[in-house]
Amino acid sequence: MEPIRVGIIGVGNVLNQYLDKIGVHPEVDVVALADVNAAAVAARAAEYSVPKALTPDQLLADPEVELVLNLTPPKLHAPVTLQAIAAGKHVLSEKPFATSLEEAQQILDAARAAGVKVGSAPTTFLGSGMQTSRKLIDDGWIGRPVAAFGSFACRGYEYWHPNVDPFYSPGAGPMLDIGPYLITNLVNIFGPAKRVAASAPRSSETRPRPTADGGFDGVIEIQTPTHVTGTIEFESGGVATVIVSWDVWNHNLPHLEIYGTGGSLATPNPDHFEGAPVVRRGEPRDLSLDMTPPGGGDWRETPITHRDDAYRGIGLAEFGYAIRNGLEPRTGGDFAYHSLEILLAFEASAAQGRHIEIESTCERPRPLPSVGPHEPYRFD
């Protein structure tokens, strides 16, 4: 297959996560980088031996670029994606797909009119840990999946992120930032959702702004919920409980566990591409009055069934393969829109005090074929 020729707009913190292992994916040829910061894009192009360091407008006008990877800040995802579509490019965007359903619908409409493919990260559900989890569930190791629990919780990003204000602005917050890793993996396991119920408070109106020397300088205005919790009901009959928070110092919560009629499965971190799930089949002791305590019983780590050096470049490789072969990418527009609608439904449910029905749907992503550690990745 001729590699898909990729141009990347945005050379910030996440770029290395796409390019550090891009060499394992011969389906991808990164031909250009672009950013409004000319010095930064020149340095990054030299670092990764990318032949062209351009402005965003130059990249969109470059006929060599077929697929744009949009790594701009979240509020620019939709505008940049629409500009790329107008230039006749396919687009894979970092999460979130957009910050509103209106923007997301504009993207889908524009892409269909232009005859191009669009989609969105996160693509961690394509990694070995989550694909192994998917295979174990599909093969019946825990029976029929009926419930799940997922969480990401910490104290917030201001103590380490160099530009934290956008994370606390409208259209951001923990649900749109870290929530996508849970939601996309849950849709990968259960299929499309049908409704959401949630609460979404914030613990304060401002937070102290830390400085590098350990002091504080002014405040950060908090304009988004910082603790979001709720449930998702899926068309398949399963239900998931989700917590994402920037109000928690410490916890003992799992990242993602799936509960079936015959046992339970704890996945690796849904923000990562590697790791092995652990499985615990139902045991007689679980039926006693004194239930087995959390973590008790015979949990067993399973061998992985998929090559485990993908990193974020696997999303580009899968997208490129789909374009070359006339397929819908597993992270394509309907999947991206549906995932975004679920994410936004949490805050809408909290604000309106009711269940929010999910109006869109999507296909459950096709599982990736299993491959060994020295075999090429397969995306058929």
Rank of each mutant, 00 (worst) to 15 (best):
D308N: 15
D308E: 15
D308H: 13
D309H: 03
D309T: 00
D309I: 00
D309G: 02
D309P: 01
A310N: 00
A310G: 11
A310T: 04
Y311R: 13
Y311V: 02
Y311L: 10
R312P: 00
R312C: 07
R312T: 00
R312Y: 14
G313N: 00
G313W: 00
G313H: 00
G313M: 00
G315P: 03
G315Q: 08
G315K: 06
G315S: 04
L316T: 05
A317I: 03
A317T: 05
A317C: 06
E318H: 08
E318I: 06
F319Q: 01
G320P: 08
G320M: 06
G320E: 07
G320D: 04
Y321H: 15
Y321S: 05
A322D: 05
A322F: 12
A322E: 04
I323S: 01
I323R: 02
I323P: 01
R324D: 14
N325G: 01
G326N: 10
G326L: 11
L327R: 13
L327G: 00
E328N: 02
P329I: 11
P329N: 04
P329E: 03
P329T: 13
P329Y: 05
P329D: 03
P329S: 02
R330D: 03
R330N: 09
R330I: 11
T331F: 04
T331W: 02
T331Y: 02
T331C: 09
T331M: 10
G332C: 12
G332N: 10
G333C: 07
D334P: 12
D334K: 12
F335D: 02
F335N: 08
A336N: 13
A336Q: 12
A336F: 15
Y337V: 08
Y337F: 15
Y337A: 07
H338A: 08
H338Q: 10
L340M: 09
L340G: 03
E341N: 09
E341S: 10
E341F: 06
L343I: 15
L343F: 08
L343D: 14
L344G: 09
L344R: 11
L344W: 08
A345T: 03
A345K: 07
F346Q: 07
F346P: 10
F346Y: 10
E347R: 11
E347M: 08
E347Q: 13
E347G: 11
A348Q: 14
A348P: 01
A348W: 11
S349T: 12
S349F: 13
S349R: 09
A350T: 03
A350G: 12
A350Q: 02
A351Q: 14
Q352A: 14
Q352W: 01
Q352F: 03
Q352K: 14
Q352P: 02
G353K: 09
R354F: 03
R354Y: 03
R354P: 04
R354C: 11
R354K: 15
R354T: 15
H355C: 12
